[in-house]
Design a protein around this nucleic acid. Structure first.
Lengths: 196, 196
DNA sequence: GCAAAAACATACTACTTAGTATGTTTTTGC
DNA sequence: GCAAAAACATACTAAGTAGTATGTTTTTGC
């Protein structure tokens, strides 16, 4: 049962790419099987329907990625505020999988799917909650270490930073250039310094 | 030519509502003519195709609204930082047309349309640029009035605040409750105070 | 009051969509 | 090696989609 798992994975990976570029609703199953060169029979053998595949993309692809690229850098012994800034700078300016014109995959799916599918909503909620909690933990650690002011509200500050990230990703889609990221990053640095 | 203009306007208004709730791609023309009780012949008399109607929504409906609810409050003689906070608080917590579960119309359209339609991109770019410029002007005025520090970069600060707004609107769609707005607004207030 | 244009109405088309029915091939356990 | 199940392939369906063709009604200018 090795090859079967491989086709399932290629479906997920190629479908994710298409959805990341085109959106979920506008990516058809015919589209997916055309680029994967997998037949419709194979597709529906692995997934009950389109939505089940979509959920698998979130749970089987995005969640592991989140743990690696988004949460890992927050679980560090380094200076918390520097770690947060570096994470954002890395995600926005250096990450090779995220393209400025396509924005943030999780934010895109949230925008498109929350009204339609409760399961998507739940999965995306779990996904973001993990990231949020990781940042909250880091800020709390910074407070106990004396690197962040005690009167800083960790959840508040986290929501503020995360909102900025999702928002600037959307501005990136609009401008189609990483240039817009720069003023955001500069001011993020200014803001983070005020938390010391 | 009064009644004709009225039908055109009802099409735009009802279509906007549907698109705001459901998204652009997933709102069909049959959907629109069903809720407006306008026939397909009437629809295609007023609009060449679906995209032309979409553009008219941005240019004929959203732009005037933006001027009123979004830009007007920034053209004030009051304290700039208080004005910015009050605007955001009003938009997020009090505005009766914007629903937490549907997010920000302009942000939604940006998410959905930028990759597909260059005209949409241009129209949305103009729309947001107007709002951005208004906030930049207000911050600059605050600097000359001595209400904001001279070393504050107006464009940077504006992009930071606007990103946060678009981002928290998306978190609202995810959580489906204005509760998420509160930590954001609190921290926004903290941030704005650091600009004095 | 009446022709012409504007405004609207109805029936249809060509295409795309998610999903199914019914196959064939490949792998697996014994 | 071979039956049974897993994995894949092909052809189809029913419902929806944007848009068109061809009307009829209403408004407008004179």
């Amino acid at each position: 049962m090795k090859k079967a798992e491989a086709t399932r994975l290629t479906i997920l990976e190629k479908a994710f790419e298409l959805i990341y570029m085109q959106g979920y609703q506008t990516t058809s199953i015919d589209d997916i099987i055309a680029t994967t060169k997998v037949t419709k029979g194979a597709f529906y053998y692995h997934f009950k329907n389109k939505d089940e595949m979509g959920l698998s993309i979130i749970n089987d692809l995005l969640k592991p990625t989140l743990a690696g690229s988004f949460i890992g850098p927050l679980q560090t012994d380094a200076d918390p505020l520097t770690a947060i800034y570096n994470l954002m700078h890395n995600l926005l300016m250096e990450n090779e999988f995220l393209k400025v014109e396509y924005g943030c995959p999780a934010a895109n799916l949230t925008h498109e799917m929350t009204s339609w599918n409760a399961d998507f909503n739940k999965a995306l909620n779990e996904l973001t909650r993990q990231w949020i909690d990781a940042m909250i933990d880091l800020i709390e650690r910074g407070k106990t270490d004396g690197l962040i002011r005690k009167d800083v509200n960790a959840r508040q500050a986290t929501m503020f930073v995360m909102s900025g990230y999702w928002g600037i990703r959307n501005f990136g889609k609009l401008e189609r250039s990483k240039e817009v990221y720069l003023p955001y990053l500069n001011e993020l640095k200014n803001y983070l310094e005020t938390l010391r």
